[in-house]
Design a protein around this nucleic acid. Sequence first.
DNA 1: AATGTGTGTTACCGGTCAGTAACGTCCCAA
DNA 2: TTGGGACGTTACTGACCGGTAACACACATT
Lengths: 205, 205
Amino acid sequence: MSSTPSKTIADNSDKLVTTLGRPRERIVKSAIELFRQHGIKGIGVDAIAEAAGSNKMTLYRHFGCKDDLVCECLKQVSSEKERIWVDLEDAYPGDPARQLRGWVDEAAQRIFNDLRGCDLVNAAVELKEAGHPAQKVIMDAKKAHMQHLVELCRRAGVQQYEQLAQALVLLVEGARVCGQSIGIEGPQQRLEQTCEALIDAFSKH
Amino acid sequence: MSSTPSKTIADNSDKLVTTLGRPRERIVKSAIELFRQHGIKGIGVDAIAEAAGSNKMTLYRHFGCKDDLVCECLKQVSSEKERIWVDLEDAYPGDPARQLRGWVDEAAQRIFNDLRGCDLVNAAVELKEAGHPAQKVIMDAKKAHMQHLVELCRRAGVQQYEQLAQALVLLVEGARVCGQSIGIEGPQQRLEQTCEALIDAFSKH
DNA sequence: AATGTGTGTTACCGGTCAGTAACGTCCCAA
DNA sequence: TTGGGACGTTACTGACCGGTAACACACATT
């Protein structure tokens, strides 16, 4: 049997990722995208492995169970989200007020371009089982993001910085979820103006 | 998955209703509650029928498929939500400004007492398949609620009534989803004060 | 008494899913 | 050259799930 099929892995027409990188990274990347498209309970590990140009066995060698893979995906998503804070500092160095505007702008852009909502929130909706390991990942990520925003509002010179940060998060989270349930013509259309008006109101005193 | 509910057949601890009323109503009522607890994809039709004190055959005689049952549940949930508008009119007859405050108060109360989020939003998160019949039900209900609130803001004498209604919906939806993902200590704690301050700001001009 | 409707019971089908076993292959480092 | 680790392939298990078939029963109407 020397003439093994040897399946040229070049065929990736229906795959989400090429064979660039190691299987573990490809699996996580494919899983993130497929969870986004179909939901966590809406896609199977076999489909994820195949989309990654790999197979179920390799997936289970890297992740003990599906939940572990889910947690890894959520951790990666949240660590990518964390990048925004350094990006903002790079874009407007030493200008927290403009960074805050930049944060609003970025949120509005994402909501306008993608109606699928926040991966972390979506995961929280699906994984209700008490004590599910993903819940801690989600909660930690959301709290960290919240604290970063509070700190930014404080540095921007807002006196009631915590109130402002909380209101902004509510508006943005609400906008994402409205886009998801109502669609493009939801009440999230004026998100940016509303946020900026709020920032102005809080900046006056 | 490591966190499957896995209920034994003999366990009727989650028998939600007695045999009061006809099977159809009991099934819908049980389904709403079980969807709330486990998610739509997290509970099977058999468990729903059993919790309703009925059986799968009777369920399928009333609902052609699971999706039909889901749609019926969402319609019932949204029609119950609609009751708030007449309740507000009853509570503060002819006083739209106080009705608007009442709407905010009701939303804040519900968010404080229940961290499971909005059934319609949760369903939208789970049912992503293109053209799923539940999506129209969800969208219609959300749009109707939005329009009711816009109308209430207009009747309350707010000039930019549409902007105010949109901002309030974003805040409330964001608050619900933050409670769900972050938990009790999320940024939704000051929802009521934020909404009232916003109403005040819009009412001045 | 006859009939039809709504309901309960049991058993089954085909499919999917998470997870595992056993074996084969490839590549790299020693 | 050789050995080992990472990866691929196939096949399987056991559970669950959506949905259906066939039959039995209870009851109300006529």
